[in-house]
Nucleic acid binder design. Structure first.
Lengths: 222, 222
DNA sequence: GTCATCGACTCCAATTTTGGAGTTGACGTC
DNA sequence: GACGTCAACTCCAAAATTGGAGTCGATGAC
Protein backbone atom coordinates (compact mmCIF):
# COMPACT_ATOMS: atom_id res chain seq x y z
CA UNK A 1 0.00 0.00 0.00
CA UNK A 2 2.50 2.54 -1.09
CA UNK A 3 0.54 4.50 -3.64
CA UNK A 4 -2.25 6.33 -1.88
CA UNK A 5 -2.58 9.34 -4.12
CA UNK A 6 -4.78 9.59 -7.17
CA UNK A 7 -3.10 11.91 -9.63
CA UNK A 8 -5.35 12.36 -12.65
CA UNK A 9 -6.30 9.14 -14.33
CA UNK A 10 -5.51 9.48 -18.06
CA UNK A 11 -8.88 8.97 -19.69
CA UNK A 12 -10.85 9.65 -16.53
CA UNK A 13 -14.04 11.58 -16.20
CA UNK A 14 -12.40 14.37 -14.26
CA UNK A 15 -9.93 15.00 -17.05
CA UNK A 16 -12.59 14.95 -19.71
CA UNK A 17 -14.71 17.42 -17.83
CA UNK A 18 -11.77 19.74 -17.41
CA UNK A 19 -11.19 19.70 -21.11
CA UNK A 20 -14.87 20.34 -21.68
CA UNK A 21 -14.96 23.29 -19.30
CA UNK A 22 -11.81 24.70 -20.84
CA UNK A 23 -13.31 24.64 -24.30
CA UNK A 24 -16.51 26.17 -22.98
CA UNK A 25 -14.48 29.06 -21.61
CA UNK A 26 -12.44 29.38 -24.77
CA UNK A 27 -15.55 29.32 -26.93
CA UNK A 28 -17.15 32.03 -24.85
CA UNK A 29 -14.02 34.14 -24.87
CA UNK A 30 -13.59 33.69 -28.59
CA UNK A 31 -17.10 34.87 -29.35
CA UNK A 32 -16.98 37.83 -26.99
CA UNK A 33 -13.51 38.99 -28.01
CA UNK A 34 -14.53 38.83 -31.64
CA UNK A 35 -17.79 40.61 -31.05
CA UNK A 36 -16.82 43.41 -28.70
CA UNK A 37 -13.04 43.36 -28.38
CA UNK A 38 -10.58 42.11 -25.81
CA UNK A 39 -10.44 45.02 -23.40
CA UNK A 40 -14.17 45.55 -23.57
CA UNK A 41 -15.07 42.11 -22.31
CA UNK A 42 -14.73 41.20 -18.67
CA UNK A 43 -13.86 37.91 -17.08
CA UNK A 44 -17.25 37.80 -15.42
CA UNK A 45 -18.93 38.14 -18.78
CA UNK A 46 -16.93 35.25 -20.16
CA UNK A 47 -17.68 33.19 -17.09
CA UNK A 48 -21.38 33.77 -17.39
CA UNK A 49 -21.46 32.83 -21.04
CA UNK A 50 -19.40 29.74 -20.36
CA UNK A 51 -21.73 28.76 -17.48
CA UNK A 52 -18.77 28.67 -15.13
CA UNK A 53 -17.68 30.64 -12.09
CA UNK A 54 -15.12 33.41 -12.63
CA UNK A 55 -12.88 31.71 -10.10
CA UNK A 56 -12.78 28.67 -12.35
CA UNK A 57 -11.42 30.73 -15.22
CA UNK A 58 -8.59 31.89 -12.96
CA UNK A 59 -8.03 28.29 -11.92
CA UNK A 60 -7.52 27.36 -15.53
CA UNK A 61 -5.81 30.33 -17.11
CA UNK A 62 -4.51 32.48 -14.20
CA UNK A 63 -4.72 35.74 -16.14
CA UNK A 64 -6.72 37.31 -18.90
CA UNK A 65 -3.74 37.53 -21.30
CA UNK A 66 -3.06 33.86 -20.65
CA UNK A 67 -6.61 33.08 -21.60
CA UNK A 68 -6.08 34.93 -24.84
CA UNK A 69 -2.83 33.08 -25.48
CA UNK A 70 -4.58 29.77 -24.98
CA UNK A 71 -7.18 30.89 -27.46
CA UNK A 72 -4.51 31.78 -30.01
CA UNK A 73 -2.83 28.44 -29.49
CA UNK A 74 -6.11 26.68 -30.06
CA UNK A 75 -6.73 28.52 -33.28
CA UNK A 76 -3.26 27.77 -34.56
CA UNK A 77 -3.85 24.11 -33.88
CA UNK A 78 -7.33 24.14 -35.33
CA UNK A 79 -5.98 25.63 -38.54
CA UNK A 80 -3.33 22.95 -38.82
CA UNK A 81 -5.21 20.72 -41.28
CA UNK A 82 -5.64 23.62 -43.64
CA UNK A 83 -1.89 24.20 -43.61
CA UNK A 84 -1.13 20.52 -44.06
CA UNK A 85 -3.44 20.57 -47.00
CA UNK A 86 -1.52 23.47 -48.45
CA UNK A 87 1.63 21.36 -48.27
CA UNK A 88 0.12 18.78 -50.59
CA UNK A 89 0.32 21.17 -53.51
CA UNK A 90 3.42 23.26 -53.00
CA UNK A 91 4.45 25.62 -55.80
CA UNK A 92 7.53 24.59 -57.74
CA UNK A 93 9.52 27.59 -56.68
CA UNK A 94 10.83 28.06 -53.11
CA UNK A 95 10.16 31.75 -53.18
CA UNK A 96 6.59 31.27 -54.33
CA UNK A 97 6.10 28.57 -51.74
CA UNK A 98 7.21 30.73 -48.86
CA UNK A 99 5.16 33.65 -50.01
CA UNK A 100 2.03 31.57 -50.41
CA UNK A 101 2.55 30.05 -46.98
CA UNK A 102 2.96 33.48 -45.47
CA UNK A 103 -0.28 34.55 -47.04
CA UNK A 104 -2.03 31.55 -45.59
CA UNK A 105 -0.58 32.20 -42.16
CA UNK A 106 -1.62 35.84 -42.23
CA UNK A 107 -5.14 34.97 -43.29
CA UNK A 108 -5.46 32.36 -40.59
CA UNK A 109 -4.09 34.69 -37.95
CA UNK A 110 -6.61 37.40 -38.66
CA UNK A 111 -9.51 35.08 -39.30
CA UNK A 112 -10.48 34.68 -35.66
CA UNK A 113 -8.33 37.11 -33.71
CA UNK A 114 -8.43 40.87 -34.15
CA UNK A 115 -5.38 43.08 -34.31
CA UNK A 116 -6.15 44.18 -30.78
CA UNK A 117 -5.88 40.59 -29.62
CA UNK A 118 -2.61 40.05 -31.44
CA UNK A 119 -1.16 43.19 -29.89
CA UNK A 120 -1.96 41.80 -26.46
CA UNK A 121 -0.47 38.46 -27.36
CA UNK A 122 2.75 39.89 -28.74
CA UNK A 123 3.16 42.30 -25.89
CA UNK A 124 2.78 39.52 -23.36
CA UNK A 125 6.12 38.17 -24.56
CA UNK A 126 7.77 41.23 -23.10
CA UNK A 127 5.67 42.22 -20.12
CA UNK A 128 6.30 38.85 -18.52
CA UNK A 129 9.26 37.14 -20.20
CA UNK A 130 9.67 33.58 -19.06
CA UNK A 131 6.09 33.62 -17.82
CA UNK A 132 3.36 31.30 -18.84
CA UNK A 133 2.15 33.51 -21.65
CA UNK A 134 5.63 33.86 -23.10
CA UNK A 135 6.10 30.12 -23.07
CA UNK A 136 2.79 29.62 -24.81
CA UNK A 137 3.88 32.14 -27.41
CA UNK A 138 7.06 30.20 -27.98
CA UNK A 139 5.10 27.02 -28.45
CA UNK A 140 2.93 28.81 -30.94
CA UNK A 141 5.98 29.88 -32.90
CA UNK A 142 7.41 26.39 -32.80
CA UNK A 143 4.37 24.95 -34.46
CA UNK A 144 4.96 27.22 -37.41
CA UNK A 145 8.70 26.66 -37.42
CA UNK A 146 8.30 22.92 -37.58
CA UNK A 147 6.05 23.25 -40.57
CA UNK A 148 8.56 25.51 -42.26
CA UNK A 149 11.30 22.98 -41.68
CA UNK A 150 9.23 20.37 -43.43
CA UNK A 151 8.61 22.67 -46.32
CA UNK A 152 12.29 23.58 -46.70
CA UNK A 153 13.32 19.94 -46.65
CA UNK A 154 10.86 19.30 -49.41
CA UNK A 155 12.52 21.92 -51.59
CA UNK A 156 15.99 20.64 -50.72
CA UNK A 157 15.00 17.15 -51.79
CA UNK A 158 13.95 18.57 -55.12
CA UNK A 159 17.18 20.47 -55.58
CA UNK A 160 15.37 23.77 -55.40
CA UNK A 161 17.24 24.86 -52.32
CA UNK A 162 20.92 24.58 -51.38
CA UNK A 163 21.45 21.25 -49.66
CA UNK A 164 24.08 22.72 -47.39
CA UNK A 165 21.77 25.08 -45.56
CA UNK A 166 20.35 23.96 -42.21
CA UNK A 167 16.54 23.91 -42.54
CA UNK A 168 16.08 24.57 -38.84
CA UNK A 169 18.23 27.66 -38.90
CA UNK A 170 16.60 28.96 -42.05
CA UNK A 171 13.14 28.30 -40.68
CA UNK A 172 14.13 30.14 -37.55
CA UNK A 173 15.27 33.09 -39.56
CA UNK A 174 12.16 33.26 -41.71
CA UNK A 175 9.72 32.90 -38.84
CA UNK A 176 11.72 35.46 -36.92
CA UNK A 177 11.56 38.15 -39.53
CA UNK A 178 7.94 37.48 -40.50
CA UNK A 179 6.92 37.51 -36.87
CA UNK A 180 8.57 40.86 -36.59
CA UNK A 181 6.78 42.09 -39.69
CA UNK A 182 3.52 40.80 -38.33
CA UNK A 183 4.16 42.62 -35.06
CA UNK A 184 4.72 45.90 -36.83
CA UNK A 185 1.62 45.26 -38.88
CA UNK A 186 -0.74 44.72 -35.97
CA UNK A 187 0.88 47.53 -34.03
CA UNK A 188 0.03 49.94 -36.82
CA UNK A 189 -3.60 50.80 -37.16
CA UNK A 190 -3.97 50.69 -40.93
CA UNK A 191 -3.01 48.39 -43.75
CA UNK A 192 -4.33 45.22 -45.26
CA UNK A 193 -2.93 41.75 -45.54
CA UNK A 194 -1.50 42.75 -48.89
CA UNK A 195 0.52 45.48 -47.20
CA UNK A 196 1.79 42.99 -44.67
CA UNK A 197 2.91 40.61 -47.40
CA UNK A 198 4.48 43.43 -49.37
CA UNK A 199 6.46 44.32 -46.28
CA UNK A 200 7.85 40.82 -45.98
CA UNK A 201 8.58 40.16 -49.63
CA UNK A 202 11.95 41.92 -49.89
CA UNK A 203 13.10 40.22 -46.69
CA UNK A 204 12.38 36.82 -48.05
CA UNK A 205 14.04 37.68 -51.31
CA UNK A 206 17.19 38.82 -49.56
CA UNK A 207 17.33 35.77 -47.37
CA UNK A 208 17.01 33.47 -50.31
CA UNK A 209 19.82 35.15 -52.19
CA UNK A 210 22.58 32.65 -52.75
CA UNK A 211 20.51 29.74 -51.44
CA UNK A 212 18.47 29.10 -54.53
CA UNK A 213 20.56 27.34 -57.21
CA UNK A 214 19.22 28.74 -60.46
CA UNK A 215 19.19 32.45 -59.89
CA UNK A 216 17.78 34.95 -57.46
CA UNK A 217 14.07 34.37 -57.44
CA UNK A 218 13.50 35.67 -60.93
CA UNK A 219 9.78 35.44 -61.33
CA UNK A 220 8.91 38.17 -58.90
CA UNK A 221 11.22 41.03 -59.87
CA UNK A 222 8.42 43.47 -60.50
CA UNK B 1 -25.68 38.59 11.28
CA UNK B 2 -28.17 35.85 11.74
CA UNK B 3 -28.21 34.28 8.34
CA UNK B 4 -24.88 32.60 7.78
CA UNK B 5 -25.99 29.79 5.51
CA UNK B 6 -26.28 29.99 1.79
CA UNK B 7 -29.16 27.76 0.75
CA UNK B 8 -29.31 27.67 -3.03
CA UNK B 9 -29.56 31.08 -4.60
CA UNK B 10 -32.59 31.05 -6.92
CA UNK B 11 -31.06 31.84 -10.29
CA UNK B 12 -27.54 30.92 -9.23
CA UNK B 13 -24.97 29.10 -11.24
CA UNK B 14 -25.01 26.10 -8.96
CA UNK B 15 -28.71 25.60 -9.48
CA UNK B 16 -28.50 25.97 -13.22
CA UNK B 17 -25.72 23.41 -13.39
CA UNK B 18 -27.73 20.96 -11.34
CA UNK B 19 -30.60 21.28 -13.73
CA UNK B 20 -28.24 20.80 -16.63
CA UNK B 21 -26.69 17.68 -15.15
CA UNK B 22 -30.11 16.28 -14.36
CA UNK B 23 -31.26 16.67 -17.93
CA UNK B 24 -28.01 15.15 -19.17
CA UNK B 25 -28.71 12.10 -17.05
CA UNK B 26 -32.34 11.94 -18.11
CA UNK B 27 -31.42 12.28 -21.76
CA UNK B 28 -28.90 9.48 -21.46
CA UNK B 29 -31.32 7.26 -19.60
CA UNK B 30 -34.08 7.97 -22.08
CA UNK B 31 -31.94 6.99 -25.04
CA UNK B 32 -30.55 3.86 -23.43
CA UNK B 33 -33.87 2.64 -22.03
CA UNK B 34 -35.47 3.10 -25.43
CA UNK B 35 -32.65 1.41 -27.24
CA UNK B 36 -31.90 -1.60 -25.07
CA UNK B 37 -34.53 -1.69 -22.36
CA UNK B 38 -34.68 -0.74 -18.71
CA UNK B 39 -33.27 -3.84 -17.05
CA UNK B 40 -30.58 -4.21 -19.67
CA UNK B 41 -28.98 -0.84 -19.04
CA UNK B 42 -26.85 -0.20 -16.01
CA UNK B 43 -26.41 2.92 -13.98
CA UNK B 44 -22.76 3.03 -14.94
CA UNK B 45 -23.71 3.01 -18.57
CA UNK B 46 -26.07 5.91 -18.09
CA UNK B 47 -23.45 7.77 -16.09
CA UNK B 48 -20.87 7.33 -18.78
CA UNK B 49 -23.17 8.55 -21.50
CA UNK B 50 -24.21 11.52 -19.39
CA UNK B 51 -20.55 12.35 -18.67
CA UNK B 52 -21.22 12.14 -14.95
CA UNK B 53 -20.10 9.90 -12.12
CA UNK B 54 -22.44 7.09 -11.08
CA UNK B 55 -22.44 8.50 -7.58
CA UNK B 56 -23.90 11.70 -8.95
CA UNK B 57 -26.86 9.84 -10.37
CA UNK B 58 -27.53 8.40 -6.95
CA UNK B 59 -27.19 11.88 -5.50
CA UNK B 60 -29.90 13.08 -7.78
CA UNK B 61 -32.30 10.17 -8.09
CA UNK B 62 -31.43 7.77 -5.24
CA UNK B 63 -32.62 4.65 -7.09
CA UNK B 64 -32.97 3.37 -10.59
CA UNK B 65 -36.78 3.22 -10.46
CA UNK B 66 -36.79 6.81 -9.23
CA UNK B 67 -34.73 7.80 -12.21
CA UNK B 68 -37.28 6.17 -14.45
CA UNK B 69 -40.12 7.95 -12.63
CA UNK B 70 -38.41 11.26 -13.14
CA UNK B 71 -38.09 10.42 -16.81
CA UNK B 72 -41.79 9.63 -17.05
CA UNK B 73 -42.66 12.85 -15.28
CA UNK B 74 -40.54 14.78 -17.71
CA UNK B 75 -42.21 13.18 -20.70
CA UNK B 76 -45.65 13.89 -19.33
CA UNK B 77 -44.70 17.51 -18.90
CA UNK B 78 -43.03 17.73 -22.27
CA UNK B 79 -46.16 16.41 -23.92
CA UNK B 80 -48.32 19.00 -22.19
CA UNK B 81 -48.46 21.47 -25.10
CA UNK B 82 -49.75 18.78 -27.38
CA UNK B 83 -52.55 18.03 -24.95
CA UNK B 84 -53.37 21.69 -24.51
CA UNK B 85 -53.55 21.95 -28.22
CA UNK B 86 -56.01 19.08 -28.30
CA UNK B 87 -58.25 21.06 -25.96
CA UNK B 88 -58.57 23.83 -28.49
CA UNK B 89 -60.66 21.65 -30.73
CA UNK B 90 -62.71 19.42 -28.51
CA UNK B 91 -65.34 17.24 -30.14
CA UNK B 92 -68.92 18.26 -29.51
CA UNK B 93 -69.77 15.13 -27.63
CA UNK B 94 -68.47 14.34 -24.14
CA UNK B 95 -68.06 10.71 -24.91
CA UNK B 96 -66.10 11.40 -28.08
CA UNK B 97 -64.00 13.93 -26.23
CA UNK B 98 -63.00 11.54 -23.49
CA UNK B 99 -62.23 8.78 -25.95
CA UNK B 100 -60.11 11.02 -28.11
CA UNK B 101 -58.23 12.26 -25.07
CA UNK B 102 -57.60 8.73 -23.94
CA UNK B 103 -56.22 7.90 -27.33
CA UNK B 104 -53.89 10.86 -27.15
CA UNK B 105 -52.74 9.91 -23.65
CA UNK B 106 -52.07 6.34 -24.67
CA UNK B 107 -50.09 7.41 -27.70
CA UNK B 108 -48.04 9.83 -25.67
CA UNK B 109 -47.38 7.28 -22.97
CA UNK B 110 -46.00 4.73 -25.38
CA UNK B 111 -44.17 7.19 -27.57
CA UNK B 112 -41.06 7.36 -25.43
CA UNK B 113 -41.44 4.72 -22.76
CA UNK B 114 -41.72 1.01 -23.44
CA UNK B 115 -44.18 -1.31 -21.75
CA UNK B 116 -41.31 -2.63 -19.69
CA UNK B 117 -40.69 0.87 -18.36
CA UNK B 118 -44.33 1.40 -17.53
CA UNK B 119 -44.45 -1.89 -15.70
CA UNK B 120 -41.58 -0.73 -13.53
CA UNK B 121 -43.26 2.60 -12.92
CA UNK B 122 -46.59 1.14 -11.98
CA UNK B 123 -45.08 -1.50 -9.79
CA UNK B 124 -43.10 1.12 -7.90
CA UNK B 125 -46.38 2.40 -6.51
CA UNK B 126 -46.70 -0.84 -4.59
CA UNK B 127 -43.19 -1.96 -3.80
CA UNK B 128 -42.55 1.26 -1.92
CA UNK B 129 -45.84 2.97 -1.11
CA UNK B 130 -45.34 6.42 0.32
CA UNK B 131 -41.84 6.43 -1.09
CA UNK B 132 -40.39 8.95 -3.43
CA UNK B 133 -41.35 7.01 -6.53
CA UNK B 134 -44.94 6.62 -5.39
CA UNK B 135 -45.24 10.34 -4.74
CA UNK B 136 -43.84 11.10 -8.17
CA UNK B 137 -46.40 8.73 -9.63
CA UNK B 138 -49.18 10.55 -7.82
CA UNK B 139 -47.95 13.86 -9.18
CA UNK B 140 -47.96 12.34 -12.63
CA UNK B 141 -51.58 11.29 -12.20
CA UNK B 142 -52.53 14.70 -10.90
CA UNK B 143 -51.30 16.38 -14.01
CA UNK B 144 -53.73 14.32 -16.04
CA UNK B 145 -56.55 14.72 -13.55
CA UNK B 146 -56.30 18.48 -13.64
CA UNK B 147 -56.55 18.45 -17.38
CA UNK B 148 -59.59 16.22 -17.22
CA UNK B 149 -61.26 18.58 -14.79
CA UNK B 150 -60.79 21.43 -17.24
CA UNK B 151 -62.25 19.34 -20.01
CA UNK B 152 -65.28 18.31 -17.98
CA UNK B 153 -65.99 21.91 -16.97
CA UNK B 154 -65.91 22.82 -20.62
CA UNK B 155 -68.62 20.29 -21.39
CA UNK B 156 -70.66 21.37 -18.38
CA UNK B 157 -70.55 24.96 -19.55
CA UNK B 158 -71.97 23.83 -22.84
CA UNK B 159 -74.76 21.85 -21.24
CA UNK B 160 -73.31 18.61 -22.54
CA UNK B 161 -72.72 17.22 -19.10
CA UNK B 162 -74.85 17.28 -15.97
CA UNK B 163 -74.09 20.47 -14.04
CA UNK B 164 -74.65 18.74 -10.73
CA UNK B 165 -71.73 16.34 -11.05
CA UNK B 166 -68.47 17.26 -9.36
CA UNK B 167 -65.80 17.49 -12.09
CA UNK B 168 -63.06 16.60 -9.65
CA UNK B 169 -64.78 13.44 -8.53
CA UNK B 170 -65.61 12.43 -12.07
CA UNK B 171 -62.07 13.15 -13.26
CA UNK B 172 -60.80 11.04 -10.40
CA UNK B 173 -63.04 8.19 -11.42
CA UNK B 174 -62.11 8.31 -15.08
CA UNK B 175 -58.38 8.55 -14.47
CA UNK B 176 -58.68 5.79 -11.91
CA UNK B 177 -60.29 3.30 -14.23
CA UNK B 178 -58.21 4.17 -17.25
CA UNK B 179 -55.05 3.95 -15.20
CA UNK B 180 -56.16 0.50 -14.19
CA UNK B 181 -56.86 -0.43 -17.78
CA UNK B 182 -53.48 0.90 -18.78
CA UNK B 183 -51.85 -1.17 -16.06
CA UNK B 184 -53.51 -4.34 -17.28
CA UNK B 185 -52.50 -3.44 -20.81
CA UNK B 186 -48.80 -3.01 -20.10
CA UNK B 187 -48.78 -6.02 -17.82
CA UNK B 188 -50.01 -8.16 -20.67
CA UNK B 189 -47.50 -8.86 -23.38
CA UNK B 190 -49.71 -8.50 -26.42
CA UNK B 191 -52.23 -6.04 -27.74
CA UNK B 192 -52.16 -2.72 -29.47
CA UNK B 193 -53.35 0.71 -28.50
CA UNK B 194 -56.64 -0.12 -30.15
CA UNK B 195 -57.09 -3.03 -27.79
CA UNK B 196 -56.38 -0.78 -24.85
CA UNK B 197 -58.96 1.74 -25.99
CA UNK B 198 -61.49 -0.98 -26.68
CA UNK B 199 -60.97 -2.16 -23.12
CA UNK B 200 -61.77 1.25 -21.70
CA UNK B 201 -64.69 2.12 -23.94
CA UNK B 202 -67.43 0.25 -22.07
CA UNK B 203 -66.18 1.67 -18.77
CA UNK B 204 -66.46 5.21 -20.01
CA UNK B 205 -69.89 4.49 -21.45
CA UNK B 206 -71.13 3.10 -18.15
CA UNK B 207 -69.74 6.00 -16.18
CA UNK B 208 -71.39 8.52 -18.41
CA UNK B 209 -74.79 6.85 -18.13
CA UNK B 210 -77.18 9.31 -16.55
CA UNK B 211 -74.74 12.18 -16.71
CA UNK B 212 -75.21 13.11 -20.31
CA UNK B 213 -78.50 14.98 -20.82
CA UNK B 214 -79.67 13.88 -24.24
CA UNK B 215 -79.39 10.15 -24.10
CA UNK B 216 -76.78 7.53 -23.37
CA UNK B 217 -73.96 8.18 -25.74
CA UNK B 218 -75.85 7.13 -28.84
CA UNK B 219 -73.32 7.50 -31.58
CA UNK B 220 -71.11 4.65 -30.48
CA UNK B 221 -73.48 1.80 -29.86
CA UNK B 222 -71.83 -0.56 -32.26
C1' DG C 1 -5.93 66.48 -5.55
C1' DT C 2 -9.67 63.54 -3.87
C1' DC C 3 -13.22 60.54 -4.43
C1' DA C 4 -15.84 57.02 -6.58
C1' DT C 5 -15.93 53.39 -9.82
C1' DC C 6 -14.63 49.45 -12.24
C1' DG C 7 -12.41 45.33 -13.42
C1' DA C 8 -8.56 42.14 -12.75
C1' DC C 9 -7.12 39.26 -9.40
C1' DT C 10 -6.63 36.86 -4.54
C1' DC C 11 -8.31 34.11 -0.78
C1' DC C 12 -10.95 30.95 1.58
C1' DA C 13 -14.97 28.36 3.27
C1' DA C 14 -19.00 25.89 1.72
C1' DT C 15 -20.84 22.75 -1.55
C1' DT C 16 -20.69 19.29 -4.83
C1' DT C 17 -18.75 15.87 -7.60
C1' DT C 18 -15.73 12.22 -8.22
C1' DG C 19 -13.11 7.81 -7.54
C1' DG C 20 -12.95 3.70 -5.54
C1' DA C 21 -13.64 0.17 -2.23
C1' DG C 22 -17.01 -2.46 -0.24
C1' DT C 23 -21.86 -4.57 0.81
C1' DT C 24 -25.83 -6.99 -0.56
C1' DG C 25 -29.03 -9.74 -2.98
C1' DA C 26 -30.47 -12.07 -7.21
C1' DC C 27 -29.38 -15.46 -10.48
C1' DG C 28 -27.17 -19.15 -12.99
C1' DT C 29 -23.74 -23.11 -12.88
C1' DC C 30 -21.91 -27.19 -11.40
C1' DG D 1 -26.42 -26.37 -1.96
C1' DA D 2 -21.84 -24.07 -2.55
C1' DC D 3 -19.87 -20.81 -5.60
C1' DG D 4 -19.02 -17.05 -8.83
C1' DT D 5 -20.78 -13.16 -11.04
C1' DC D 6 -23.07 -9.02 -11.75
C1' DA D 7 -25.37 -4.81 -10.87
C1' DA D 8 -27.63 -1.83 -7.57
C1' DC D 9 -26.46 0.67 -3.89
C1' DT D 10 -23.61 2.69 0.26
C1' DC D 11 -19.80 5.21 2.21
C1' DC D 12 -16.23 8.34 2.54
C1' DA D 13 -12.01 10.91 1.47
C1' DA D 14 -9.97 13.70 -2.10
C1' DA D 15 -10.50 17.05 -5.74
C1' DA D 16 -12.75 20.66 -7.92
C1' DT D 17 -16.05 24.31 -8.34
C1' DT D 18 -18.62 27.97 -6.49
C1' DG D 19 -19.90 32.22 -3.87
C1' DG D 20 -18.54 36.09 -1.85
C1' DA D 21 -15.68 39.33 0.38
C1' DG D 22 -11.88 41.92 -0.25
C1' DT D 23 -7.26 44.06 -2.40
C1' DC D 24 -5.21 46.86 -5.79
C1' DG D 25 -4.34 49.94 -9.53
C1' DA D 26 -6.17 52.61 -13.36
C1' DT D 27 -9.33 55.96 -14.92
C1' DG D 28 -12.65 59.66 -14.91
C1' DA D 29 -15.50 63.28 -12.49
C1' DC D 30 -15.50 67.17 -9.69
Amino acid sequence: MVALRRPAKPGGLRERQKKLRATQVLDAASALFAHQGYEATGIEEIAERAAVAPATIYNYFTTKPNLLMALALRHVHAAMPERRNFFRNLPDDVFDGILAFERLLAEQALRHLSRECWRVILSAQFTDPGGRAARAGARLNNVIKRQYVGMLRFYQARGKLDEAVDPVALSDLIVGITTNDFGRFVAGSGGTIEDLLAMGLPHIRLILTGLVPVAVAPAHKK
